[in-house]
Design a binder for these strands. Structure first.
Lengths: 201, 201
DNA sequence: CTTTTAAGTGACCGTCTGGACATTAATGAC
DNA sequence: GTCATTAATGTCCAGACGGTCACTTAAAAG
């Protein structure tokens, strides 16, 4: 009895489509699949086999083209096209242009933006983290409710929360940039007017 | 020839110290080890065996006490003591109190804060992400340099970057809260004054 | 002392991972 | 046509993971 090929990988790859030879198309398909996979599930949780399945090839081919998972990631994530492509113009309308550019970029990429992909890793399937985060937001909202005047309280608190998330990221997680280099006292002096602006108009 | 026990796990656990029986001490040691490990490497990259090794016990004991890795995480990460314990007071000095409270909390926890632990997961050992992030910051700084007046340009750009990171997190990653519920147009209207405040004083 | 209880251990399991590599087959050169 | 090249496949592997469990052993109860 001869052993028939059993395909231990379980990757039947893709469709009925007759696959003709086309290395560049394969490469492109793999890259696109990798972008989507990394954006959805983050680096750690994305497997080479996931990418291969999405691209309709075997995981062997993925590694053949990109040597390793990390090199695949580096190739897939587009070089950070500057967040603001169109800052040129007068200073007065600069904030508006930044906001528009940011929103448009996020809308266009539909979640596969490398920026989002990077951040997404933390959230993927980690329900505990999600609960933690929402609880924090809720808590601080309650606390502020009787202290802060004016309308749009929720939105302002959310903005403060977002700002502090970003500061934490820069200073305590990534640990570089101006925010990371300040002393605690400097940081406080820097935060105060910004928090005032976000919270009290 | 009898097969000697080979210890396939490779966990020699801890030290020469004579370990007396003390379940509560073990529990506490495991929890502390878990806190440190999760804060340093994030959830996904922390293994039960890592925690056990740090605590000087076997991974079997860790799971005996906490049943599963997820339950260990939930037990180790302290409940989110509200980010601002001391918001009570007059509105005028509120931003100062928030800033001080935030900075103190971060300084005290020394990186093992659950907030940081949560965010850290994304960065742990993912050099690619780190490079991406710094490149983005650098890029936008260059772009702003000739457009924006005034001193402390680096710090202001960093603040804008931080703010947008946080907004992205809330809106596109976690997807809840006011920032996630706005339409794109609403978001732009909300961002503009905030960006103006952060960038142009 | 003996018996009982529970803390702690370590071998084991099924599964999955990134990676290696021999094999197969489609293509272009001659 | 034949041959060399190489894209693509699928099998294999060593290691690590979370989790289980039979067992050992220290301590408390009688």
């Amino acid at each position: 009895m001869d052993t028939p090929p059993t395909n231990l990988d379980g990757q039947d790859a893709a469709p009925a489509k007759k696959r003709r030879r086309d290395p560049e198309a394969s490469r492109a398909a793999i890259l696109e699949a990798a972008r989507a996979a990394f954006a959805e599930r983050g680096y750690a949780k994305t497997t080479v086999r996931d990418v291969a399945r999405r691209a309709g090839v075997t995981h062997g081919l993925v590694l053949r083209h990109f040597t390793s998972k990390e090199q695949l990631f580096l190739a897939a994530v587009p070089s950070p096209r500057t967040l603001m492509a169109e800052v040129a113009g007068d200073t007065k309308s600069l904030p508006t242009r930044i906001a528009r550019s940011y929103v448009r970029r996020m809308a266009e990429s539909g979640g596969s933006d490398p920026f989002v992909a990077m951040l997404r890793a933390v959230a993927s399937e980690e329900e505990a983290a999600k609960r933690l985060f929402t609880a924090m937001q809720q808590d601080s909202l309650e606390m502020y409710r009787q202290v802060i005047p004016g309308p749009e309280l929720e939105e302002r608190v959310a903005s403060v929360g977002a700002y502090l998330i970003g500061v934490t990221f820069s200073r305590y997680v990534f640990g570089n940039g101006p925010l990371a280099e300040m002393s605690d006292e400097q940081l406080v002096r820097h935060l105060v007017p910004n928090l005032r602006g976000l919270l009290l108009d």
